[in-house]
Design a protein around this nucleic acid. Structure first.
Length: 568
RNA sequence: GUCCUCGUAGCAUAAUAGGAGAAUGCAGUCGCCUCCUAAGCGACAGAUUGGAGGUUCAAAUCCUCUCGGGGACGCCA
């Protein structure tokens, strides 16, 4: 497709002695339809050219040479130069592109670049609650979008399957295991034990000490501890899989923390060699005071490993195995300091700068209850499975009410219910906290997943009623010059740019909001225009536009991990 | 106490590397189904962008201070 922005930038560059890239970056999409499709603000040039911005704008306008078949009008308003794209050219291009590319907006820009995304990472033996949803859903969306842009992506589920928490569970199981029916309902029962042992630890320091020792034993390969650990792990994975099946989550690697058990000695050795590993209060640490951070603990005083050591081992392993250009960590912002620490410490491992520069934490806000934070230990979590089931059943109720004749209600309810939950989680900026509220998450009206799905279903239905997708050669884009059509076409034109923005900021909400915009623009068009009409010329054009909208909505949704029903 | 982060209409959020009357949804009021799915569309009303300074032609956005929410600060992960 023609890159209008670039074209304008090049034309402006020829009238001035300024770098094209710089101009291209300052070109913006103006506010208000009256101001055209692209705008170049001249204010910044005022100083160097020593002229008033409107004068500069006027000069550029008279000097500029640009293909009039593409840009039909140039206007100076204040210090802005506004460019108007030829609507017909735009329509033709966009529809051609839609017709020619099955995978519209797909790109090769990430070719030969490797990206590792570490996401989801639930803790074994703990319930999969709504806090884990965000990591899972954000990570999955980034995974799909990077892949669509041609990157070679590896998704890692860095399971929390190691650490003192298992020492605690083992201790609790030892003490009261027989009181609980673990075989029947493993996670719930283990959670009860976990809550109870944490309480006991709080009351009695010596029990906590015992727990830490259990973890030490586990690391040293004590058969009783290892056996229990395996049992807990198997039960948990089975439980997690239920949720992953509902969400459609897949991972390329399930290497959790335990996987790095035998890879930590090398890390300790490398850090020793760096001369920066020092003893402090019985533990061995990397002092990061000069970097303005608390120290990174590498080995505890009972010589067992820490989360940090395992993460460092993981960096080393991933550098060697995946040769990553970027390694993303999708976790809550509670861990920002931790990642700062290990990214700093990783510089001491003798790795190529390519790797240490590629490390990036992608933090997100927490899901809070109205009463405050959720915590497994406090026992006030909402399990994800419960949420998803509730979502599906609410969706089902709405179907019964609105469209009782619908076939495969269950399947549609699943797509709509789960879609609503995923969309809700991806609709806002990552870093913002989210107050959990059933009615908000499971709202199916307004700017929601179901709204996007509903709009898609409409496009399908229109195409069906019209007797199918018209031949692109019979489509006359002259029929699509009205504002409503033009707005849609401009949005579709921007699709790839939106995906690039998502990867630039690791912010899937940019795509979610975009889909809302597309759906809204189409709904407006749909209400203003009759699509199936006597004039086949008009009908073909409008149906083809409808087809294009449906295609982008479905593609975009699938990149977010949301499935589209054909009817709802 | 130190550091990080967030603060935008009653509520939930947008605002494309500082840019054109701060934009949407929910809730509220009003209109639109003999016509392609009303899970929809349109209209009205609702904001000194927490507060005070500063930088700039231009500040929700950057800087300083201040108030408020959240988080992190050595053997949890």
């Amino acid at each position: 497709m023609i890159d209008f922005k670039k074209m304008i930038a090049e034309a402006i560059a020829k009238t001035l002695e300024i770098d094209v890239k710089e101009i291209e970056m300052s070109i913006e999409n103006p506010k208000g339809a009256d101001n055209g499709d692209y705008a170049f603000p001249c204010f910044r040039l005022a100083k160097t050219l020593r002229k008033a911005p409107p004068m500069i704008a006027e000069e550029i306008k008279t000097k500029i040479k640009i293909d009039e078949n593409q840009i039909t009008k140039i206007e100076v308003v204040g210090g802005y130069i506004n460019f108007f794209v030829n609507k017909e050219a735009l329509a033709k291009q966009v529809l051609q592109e839609i017709a020619q590319n099955e995978e519209y907006g797909k790109s090769e820009m990430g070719k030969e670049k490797n990206i590792v995304i570490d996401y989801s990472a639930p803790n074994i033996a703990k319930p999969f609650h709504i806090g884990h949803l965000r990591s899972t859903v954000i990570g999955a969306a980034l995974y799909k979008i990077y892949k669509y842009l041609g990157y070679n992506v590896t998704g890692v589920n860095h399971l929390g399957d190691y650490g003192t928490q298992f020492g605690k569970l083992i201790e609790g199981y030892k003490k009261w295991g027989s009181e609980y029916n673990i075989d029947e309902n493993p996670i719930d029962e283990l959670t009860k034990i976990y809550i109870r042992i944490n309480q006991a630890c709080k009351e009695d320091e010596s029990i906590l000490e015992e727990c830490r020792n259990n973890f030490k034993k586990l690391e040293d390969g004590d058969s009783y501890c290892v056996e229990l650990w395996n049992k807990f792990k198997d039960a948990s994975l089975k439980e997690f899989q239920k949720v992953y099946d509902l969400l459609g989550s897949k991972f390329d690697s399930w290497n959790g923390e335990a996987f790095y058990a035998d890879k930590m000695p090398e890390i300790v050795e490398l850090l020793e060699m760096s001369g920066r590993l020092v003893e402090s209060e019985g533990a061995r640490i990397i002092d990061l005071e000069n970097q303005g951070m608390a120290p990174c603990i590498i080995e505890k005083s009972n010589s067992s490993s820490t989360y940090a050591t395992r993460d460092l081992a993981a960096i080393m392993y991933r550098a060697r195995t995946y040769n990553f250009d970027k390694a993303l960590y999708v976790t809550s912002y509670e861990q920002v300091l931790h990642f700062k620490q290990i990214f700093e410490t990783a510089k001491l491992l003798g790795l190529d700068e390519k790797y240490t520069n590629g490390l990036e934490h992608v933090p997100f806000g927490m899901v809070l209850q109205k009463e405050g934070k959720m915590s497994t230990r406090e026992g006030n979590v909402i399990k994800l499975e419960e949420l998803l089931n509730e979502a599906m059943s609410r969706a089902k109720n709405i179907i019964e009410e609105k469209n009782p004749e619908l076939e495969n209600k269950e399947e549609v309810a699943k797509k709509v219910g789960i879609g609503a939950v995923i969309f809700n989680d991806l609709a806002n900026s990552r870093v913002k906290d989210e107050i959990f509220d059933w009615d908000t998450i499971l709202n199916f009206q307004g700017e929601t997943g179901p709204y996007v799905q509903y709009t898609y279903v409409r496009t399908k239905s229109v195409i069906e009623k019209a007797g199918g997708i018209p031949d692109i050669n019979k489509v006359n884009s002259n029929y699509l010059l009205d504002d409503a059509s033009n707005r849609i076409l401009k949005l579709i034109y921007n699709f790839e740019d939106i995906l690039i923005q998502v990867t630039d900021k690791n912010e899937p909400s940019i795509l979610s909001r975009y889909l809302i915009d597309v759906a809204k623009a189409y709904s407006n068009f749909y209400n203003e225009n009759k699509i199936i009409v006597d004039d086949k010329g008009i009908q073909n054009a409008r149906v083809y536009l409808t087809y294009a909208v449906g295609k982008v909505l479905k593609l975009g949704a699938s990149l977010l991990g949301i499935e589209m029903p054909d009817k709802m």
